[in-house]
Design a protein around this nucleic acid. Sequence first.
DNA 1: TCACATTTAATTGTTCGCAATTGAATGTGC
DNA 2: GCACATTCAATTGCGAACAATTAAATGTGA
Lengths: 152, 152
Amino acid sequence: MPRKLSAVDPLRLDNQICFAVYSAAHAFNRVYKPLLDRLGLTYPQYLVMLVLWERDDVPVKDIGEKLFLDSGTLTPLLKRLEAAHLVKRTRSSEDERQVLIALTPQGHALKEKARSVPQSILAASDCSVPELVAMKDEIVALRDRLNAVIGE
Amino acid sequence: MPRKLSAVDPLRLDNQICFAVYSAAHAFNRVYKPLLDRLGLTYPQYLVMLVLWERDDVPVKDIGEKLFLDSGTLTPLLKRLEAAHLVKRTRSSEDERQVLIALTPQGHALKEKARSVPQSILAASDCSVPELVAMKDEIVALRDRLNAVIGE
DNA sequence: TCACATTTAATTGTTCGCAATTGAATGTGC
DNA sequence: GCACATTCAATTGCGAACAATTAAATGTGA
């Protein structure tokens, strides 16, 4: 009995890892949404806050490198975080080209409210921590290989 | 010697599988971009074309269910595909609420130009096919568990 | 010093992605 | 047959995401 061609058709949606990643990212976003609504953050804003909770007073460029985002995305996003009184934007005095992003007291305080988020995500994943760590490492390795190709 | 807390801190960016997925999706998008530019498609438009190349003349709702997208995303996207003469949008005569999406001859023809895309992605992934299939299956399973939680 | 390149954010314009709403068509329970 | 709910696409508004450009600050070489 001949194998169905569709099972190996490279143009089939179900065979594409990229669509798996794309749709998983959207699924994560939908799980995060109600959790982050309580913090008044969108998911990309939450990522920026994660960066700042690790290290404060960083240039826009550093945030961009960690999150793989450029100023076209970050500038308006950071302005919204500033409008929400979570960060302050100031030109660096050493290098006037740089804009340094610092947390406000409210920005610092929000970290406490965010502590419950990861475990909610873990529960929704319905997966053991070692399994998730293994998957994460594989996906990061794939991402880094893809990014290496982009730099040519 | 005590383990660094950061290695297990759930709020650390590097520990979050969701960020791995999010950033991998963007990396894929950047790899796809030059390939899809030659087809005159964006990545979401390419996904819609993949669906239509599998089965033609389908309602918007069916496309949305396969891609996990709603009409707010698909309606303008499909109008752009129609403006590019790749699809035709017609009201179903059986159920006037539905809009059926059908490929034009140009839309059908584009499939041939798209055949080289998957192997370019495979090359950029720098990964064996069995490995990619295994990763894809894991990610799809995770996505489906997340989507199950959303439906409560 | 001075011309030139580089770095850094900001800006503009296009396309997703989704929540919320609208309006038309269809299905249902009585 | 008729009120009612449901389904489906379209619309509106907002927040990413990114390409391309701009402008200012800084670095470099002759």
